[in-house]
């Protein structure tokens, strides 16, 4: 509730103080987030290469971007990674949440175990999985030692498969997060609904499928949103696990942007690719935030 009727002693300072306190942060965000978006947008219309160069070239950088094979590999990879990572983390997380919700002993300990990867940085995760999946001494050797002599696992160095290693590590790291959000949601559901359905003779899987999961729609959408956002911004994991390789077979838009802008002297192209990422994120986030803010206002 906002302060509409001001008490008599609501003085000059009290009127300006809140604005003054908020001002520094607001200005920082205005300049360094919104201002920089505009600036980056401007850069994407220039011929900047190694250094900024404000010679206007119109849409030339975007044309170059859309003509770039490497960019389309990155976009294609984002699609594969996004679908498998979001789908995988969702399924694993939801299943674990439902199983944990069955009055499990040791629930606290299990939850702690499922969630700890979230405390790690993607660089640590990437380094660890890079070692486990490496073709020489990792998983492959383990399977050989166990007697599966023909087993071969070369995804990390196979251009057609490298993106899937990122999916594997990504799901491992993030599925616990889905579990935590859904478990919190499940705990919020009124027990009496479930009891009533049980009295009516509905089986437990049926109750989950028909009653409980549909009631989790809001949780589902916010989780989906966060995972999509993580997927689009994914950078660290690729850098640590494959470095975008072999070649550029496991590039994602974020690694493409970094390569162009900071190692290959293609600043304009990098700026254009960053704008494409912003547009994609906005397409996901803006409708979501809009509905969230509207809902909270109407509550």
């Amino acid at each position: 509730m906002s302060v509409t009727s001001r008490p008599a002693h609501y003085g000059f300072a009290e009127h300006w103080l809140p604005r003054l306190v908020l001002a520094p942060s607001f200005l920082l965000v205005l300049v360094f987030l919104y201002g920089f978006i505009a600036w980056n947008g401007a850069l994407s219309f220039t011929a900047s290469r190694l250094l900024p160069n404000y010679e206007w070239v119109g849409l030339a950088q975007y044309e170059a971007l859309f003509a770039s094979e490497r960019w389309w590999v990155a976009v294609h990879n984002l699609f594969i990674f996004g679908v498998l990572f979001i789908g995988g983390a969702m399924v694993v997380g939801i299943v674990l949440a439902i199983l944990l919700d069955q009055k499990i002993r040791l629930e606290g300990a299990l939850r702690t175990i499922y969630l700890y990867p979230l405390a790690l940085s993607f660089i640590v995760t990437g380094t660890a999985w890079g070692w486990m999946l490496n073709p020489g001494l990792g998983l492959e050797k383990l399977m050989h030692d166990w007697g599966y002599a023909g087993f071969s696992f070369d995804w990390l160095v196979n251009p057609d498969r490298s993106i899937y290693t990122i999916v594997i590590a990504g799901i491992w790291q993030s599925s616990g997060f889905v579990m935590a959000l859904f478990l919190a949601g499940l705990r919020g559901i009124d027990d009496s609904i479930i009891k009533a359905a049980q009295i009516d003779g509905a089986s437990l899987p049926r109750i989950y499928w028909r009653i409980i999961l549909p009631a989790m729609r809001p949780v589902f959408f916010s989780t989906l949103m966060i995972l999509a956002h993580i997927a689009i911004k994914s950078f660290d994991l690729v850098m640590a696990l494959t470095g975008g390789g072999p070649g550029f077979s496991s590039d994602l838009p974020a690694t493409f942007m970094y390569q162009m802008a900071f190692t290959r002297g293609q600043m304009g192209l990098g700026a254009a690719s960053a704008m494409m990422m912003l547009v994609t994120v906005s397409a996901v986030v803006v409708p979501y935030l809009y509905s969230e803010l509207r809902r909270s206002r109407h509550v």
Partner: peptide, 13 residues
């Protein structure tokens, strides 16, 4: 909205 901005758009400026 600042929570969701892909930081790539900030890097160059």
């Amino acid at each position: 909205f600042g929570l969701y901005i892909p930081f790539q758009v900030l890097l160059l400026p």
